[in-house]
Amino acid sequence: MNNIIELKNVTKEFKVLNRHEGLKGCIKDLFSRDYKIVRAVDNIDLEVTQGEIIGFLGQNGAGKSTTIKMMTGVLEPSSGNLIINNRIPYTDRTKNSQEIGVVFGQRTQLWWSLPLVESFKLLKDIYQISDENYNEMLELYGSMVDIETLLHKPVRQMSLGQRTLSDILAAFLHNPKVVFLDEPTIGLDVAMKSKIRELILELNRKKNTTVILTSHDMGDVDALCQRIVIIDKGNLLYDNEISHLKHFFGIYRTLKIRPRENVIEVANKLKDELYAFEVSITNDDTWISILVNEEKNRIMKVLEAVQETHAIKDMQLKEISTEDVIKKIYEGGVRN
């Protein structure tokens, strides 16, 4: 078996109480046995080989976290087979943990008030890392990042970027076979983002670690992953090479404008006026977003057309987001 991760028909259902409204409803709920079954993950198949970096994408509530929690052994699948490293994670949680590493973007797993090196020493004991492997790993880290400034700083005094970096280093310390990274670059500036991406890529190459990455930032996915898995409403929507999709978010860009007049009115007018450009238009309270296919129309042309009839207060140009990609897949723009 070459697959490090294997999911077959994995389904996870939650029992949720049907809540009633109001005070009367609250009292009713106390005694109610009226449950509904919510399928968070629905019949997912997935195979991952050692050393891959997989971008695991999906909107909030799509079932990403649930799937990851099943793979890490925190949750038990309702049905189906889930094998990580020839083990069932839920029944063999301790042994599974020995061979995986987990980083949750904003939640540090390090000891809050300890200097990083002390956290490392505790992890060394907990994972029973030999002196040899431990020193080798520290040496490797030293060649990748400025480890000396991190090691002696208490985690609570670190900046978010330093903390994320430290968390990633800690997750790789025991040389796990699989590392789960959940939103590793969330809230970081551009420089730190690219530093963290480089680090992940290098660790993956040097240690042949499988990485499962979830992110809302297409930049992360673009920089790191060869393969993308998209999950939506509990279903596997897409599982293919990134090159397949890349084409797609390469050519699409979002033009965001803020009109001087009423946003909703302008948005409605634009839908007619820009009909020829084949764009899709959405709006919130202050911004109108126009998704432009640059293969068909240049963005400047669209902007010009808008400016002809409407006064613009402000504008932005945005790369396509995960949400847009998913929307496009739904619309049938990409074939799996």
Binding site: T72, R93, S97, Q98, V102, F104, R107, I126, Y127
Partner: peptide
């Protein structure tokens, strides 16, 4: 946040 305690082999 409790989930972070579930990932260690102890």
């Amino acid at each position: 946040d409790f989930v972070k305690y579930c990932f260690r082999p102890i």
